[in-house]
């Protein structure tokens, strides 16, 4: 018996959801900036950075072990 380390489907799903949120956030921020509302940028950058941190953590660290027969 040996163990392979994979990313779990749940983590992959969470990363996909985070990416959709990022896309919506970026589109909203771009519209706000074009309207001259640059005050949203620091907050949006902080939120985006946090989402990216979570996504990177899940992508590089999240694991689930599957046992398989050799």
């Amino acid at each position: 018996m040996s163990a392979s380390v994979r990313i779990s489907p749940a983590a992959l799903g969470v990363i996909l959801v985070l990416l959709v949120i990022q896309l919506y956030l970026f589109e909203t921020v771009l519209g706000a900036v074009l309207d001259g509302q640059r005050g949203v940028l620091p907050g949006a950058f902080g939120v985006s950075l946090a989402l990216t941190g979570i996504a990177l953590f899940l992508a590089f660290r999240s694991t689930v072990q599957h046992r398989r027969k050799d």
């Binding site: 994979r6 990313i7 489907p9 983590a11 992959l12 990363i15 996909l16 985070l18 990416l19 990022q22 896309l23 956030l25 970026f26 950058f45 985006s48 950075l49 989402l51 990216t52 996504a55 990177l56 899940l58 992508a59 590089f60 999240s62």
Partner: peptide, 17 residues
Amino acid sequence: SRREFARFLALVSAGFT
């Protein structure tokens, strides 16, 4: 792999940031 796909998505997320 699924892991590579997840890393790609995370890097796209970093691109938005």
